[in-house]
Simulated assay, not measured.
Amino acid sequence: MIHSGRRAMTGNGATAVIGKDGLDALIRALAAGGRTVIGPTVRDGAIVLTEIAGGDELPYGWGVELEAGHYRLRRRADGAAFAHSAGPQSWKTYLHPQRERQWTADRGADGALVVTEEDAPVPSYAFLGMRPCDLRAIAVQDRVLAGGPHTDSRYRARRERAFLVAVECTEPGATCFCTSMGAGPAVDGGYDLALTEVVDDGGHRFWARAGSEEGAAVLAQLPRRPADPATESTARQRVAGAADRMGRTMPEVDLQLLMRETLEAERWNDVASRCLTCGNCTMACPTCFCTSAEDVTDLTGDHAERWRRWESCFDLEFSHLPDGPVRATGRSRYRQWATHKLGTWYDQFGSSGCVGCGRCIVWCPVGIDITEEAHALNQERAATGGVGVPPREASS
């Protein structure tokens, strides 16, 4: 777990209600404090994450229509800013960039190579509009990239400087299953500020809570009013209602055990017949972290660079050895991804690698659904005498 220089709130944090003007003031206050504010906006037919300068850039009045292999923007009548589900990007794009230079090497006049580690300035980000599932995903990446003996120093530096503004979900998408993974739709710590959007006869407003001392200091700068019981109650009810309207579920079994007991299941052949092994799921996933090294040099041979870039376990060359690839078939590569995400991730990092955001379902070009595959594996296990099927399924 990352421990930044900011101190977490003890006891009940500061709370308030802000309006759209308060949200705009929040963006401007964070930017004035030297932070690069990243938030959602509409671009190229999607809600994407990019640098924003004011509240007018937020996707007010836009929602999304999601299904397996399907994403469309749709207009909303209520003008809500955050009533949309996860888009094609995640915050991983900024904390664990897709391509990053590691070092350079230059040959001096005496012929010796001088290697210089990359030392570019570390940006100070403010992430606005983080879903609870993405907040959980960052906590997962903290354990992976900064929680062990081999810390990624640049990830840690970016993470420690980041200011996190979470927004609770009040309207899950058809591919969301964060409730099954214990990752939403309510926030559970790990933020500097948390917002819950409410649009009703009482107006368009946000119930705001501080989760750190810096968050409380920023909240104190905004136009606000005391949090009233009606707004708080409505906000809580809408988040609780979202938990009951998830578009997808995982089977209510021990997923780690399920993956371990179905390694030879026939279902892996079924999904392999559909999977393109394109790696879209790993690129869209907020927790996938695999990278490879790419060395480049100029034509003189006097200058070389090493770059790190995202890699996918669906790439045939990802596990290449002198005798050939370790996982030569699409079946083996999909199984590796799914069993790691839902099973062996626990062995390595003490948690699941899935937060239920549904991106892998939406951005799969052939609509493969990880929840459908998990249910199918569970049903096959039950049919062959396996254990762990919920009583209501076993008796149906």
Rank of each mutant, 00 (worst) to 15 (best):
L257E: 13
C275I: 06
A265H: 11
A242M: 08
L222Q: 13
V253E: 13
Q237F: 04
M181L: 14
A235S: 14
C176Q: 04
V199C: 10
M250P: 00
G247Q: 13
E264F: 06
M181K: 09
S212N: 09
G211C: 04
A272H: 04
R274M: 09
T262E: 00
R209P: 00
C178E: 05
R267M: 02
S233F: 07
E252T: 03
V253T: 15
G184E: 09
F206Q: 09
E213T: 05
R248Y: 00
R205S: 13
R238A: 02
G173L: 10
L258H: 01
A174Q: 14
T277I: 02
G182R: 15
G215Q: 13
A265Y: 05
L258E: 01
R225E: 15
E252C: 00
A183M: 07
T277W: 02
A183T: 15
S273Q: 13
L193C: 08
T179M: 12
F177K: 03
Q221V: 05
E197I: 10
R245Y: 09
P185Q: 08
V187N: 14
T231S: 07
P226R: 13
A208W: 09
A216N: 08
A235Q: 06
A217V: 06
E214K: 08
L258S: 01
T196A: 09
G190E: 11
S233W: 07
T231W: 05
A230W: 05
A265T: 02
G173D: 04
P251A: 01
T277S: 15
V253I: 07
D244S: 14
T277Y: 01
A240F: 02
D188K: 15
P223F: 07
R245H: 15
